[in-house]
Design a protein around this nucleic acid. Sequence first.
DNA 1: ACTCATGCAACTATATCAGTTACGAGATTC
DNA 2: GAATCTCGTAACTGATATAGTTGCATGAGT
Lengths: 136, 136
Amino acid sequence: MKRNSRLSLALHTLGHMAGTPTEPRTSAEIAEHAGTNPVVVRRVLGKLREAGLLISEKGHAGGWRLARDANQITLADVYLALDERLVASEPTPEPHDCSIEHALHRRVADVMQDVEQSLIARLAQTTILEVCKSDH
Amino acid sequence: MKRNSRLSLALHTLGHMAGTPTEPRTSAEIAEHAGTNPVVVRRVLGKLREAGLLISEKGHAGGWRLARDANQITLADVYLALDERLVASEPTPEPHDCSIEHALHRRVADVMQDVEQSLIARLAQTTILEVCKSDH
DNA sequence: ACTCATGCAACTATATCAGTTACGAGATTC
DNA sequence: GAATCTCGTAACTGATATAGTTGCATGAGT
């Protein structure tokens, strides 16, 4: 798939959970609805659990549910939980020390950093609940 | 290498050309300085030529040089020439029509689009020449 | 003619990621 | 306590993207 598929899957799933927050959903159910695989679901939702957005429980009547209210979870929370930074800050500190390369790299990295912060700020303005309600 | 290596290579090369804009450089020279391969250089700089930023000439005393003044080339020009959009706008219009997924996708795509425009605007504020001069 | 340089096609190598299979651990039901 | 359900995780496969490489054709200049 594509690079954003994890974010898509996470948001999609949280969106549905916002509707019926009390009942847990299994990885298999989520995977079927999303057209993917239960293991992929567990991998992605596991990130959200680590970030405190979801709770998972094993055994009978187990599954996934929201760790807090859907109006307390913003799109930024989900984006940050997956730690897929969009900025792609160039990781090479240039071993052979070309000053022009350094100057350019620093400038681009600064802009990217600002844009990343701007993206997060924008995503933080919207909760999962708001997006789902806006669809009518 | 990484995803941003083409942008790095392009900016790095243009930065050096800004210093001595009249003399052409061969792909082999550029590749050696950048620690990569002449064909890779031609692939990347070919994009800049298509965008009208560079001129390439064959034969003796051929090579690459700036198509216009270095203070008339912004970082945004280079970014756009490579058409590597950072936004990663999710390409899947969701064949099975889940309204929640649609709503979320639209919201994220809107934010991404704005952020992309913001990135381009920021990059457009800096010319190649400025970045190289700022390194002293 | 010869040499130098780009243009381009085809192939290889590598990294990332989704998908898949398999199995273990914990929780519930009987 | 056995059976069943579910997550957790490791290991493997397959697809895709990209850098790197080789080879050759084309055009420019000597």
